Amino acid sequence: MKKLISVFLLSIVAPLTAVASGSGYHLDDMKPNVSNKASLQRGAQTFVNYCMGCHEMQYSRYERVADDLEIPHELMVENLIFNDSKIGQLMTNAMTVDAAKRWFGAAPPDLTLVARVRGEDWLYTYLRTFYEDSTRPLGVNNEVFPNVGMPHVLMELQGLQKKGCAQVAVDIDVLTGQDITEERCDVLYLAEEGSQSPAEYEETVYDLVNFLVYTAEPMQQERVRIGIIVMLFLVVLFICAYLLNREYWKDIH
Rank of each mutant, 00 (worst) to 15 (best):
I226R: 14
L9M: 13
M150C: 01
V224Y: 14
G164V: 01
L9Q: 12
S134Q: 12
D207C: 01
G139D: 01
N210F: 05
Y214D: 02
S134W: 04
Q196R: 03
N141K: 06
S134R: 11
A20R: 12
E193K: 08
I180E: 08
D207R: 06
M76W: 03
A18H: 01
E70D: 03
A94E: 10
Y124E: 00
L90M: 04
L40E: 14
V187E: 04
V168Y: 03
P109I: 15
T215N: 05
A216F: 12
A66E: 10
W103M: 13
N93T: 08
Q178H: 13
K250G: 00
R128M: 00
D68I: 09
S11H: 06
D110K: 04
V230F: 12
Q89E: 09
N147R: 07
Y242S: 14
L123R: 06
M57D: 15
V117C: 00
P198G: 03
G105D: 15
V19C: 09
F238E: 02
I172D: 06
G177H: 11
I228N: 08
V144K: 01
E143H: 07
V34P: 13
S35C: 05
V114W: 01
L40Y: 14
Q178S: 10
L123E: 06
R246H: 07
T181I: 12
Y131S: 11
Y131V: 10
G105H: 15
W103A: 13
E120Y: 06
V187P: 00
A18K: 02
Y131W: 09
F82E: 08
T129F: 03
M91Y: 04
G88T: 01
L232N: 13
D121T: 08
A99T: 08
I81V: 03
Q221S: 07
G149P: 04
Y214W: 05
A94M: 07
E200F: 02
N245G: 09
I228Q: 10
L69W: 11
G177C: 09
Y206L: 02
Q58C: 12
V140N: 05
E183M: 05
V77I: 01
D173A: 05
S197K: 05
Q58Y: 15
V170Y: 07
E120K: 02
K250L: 00
I239Q: 06
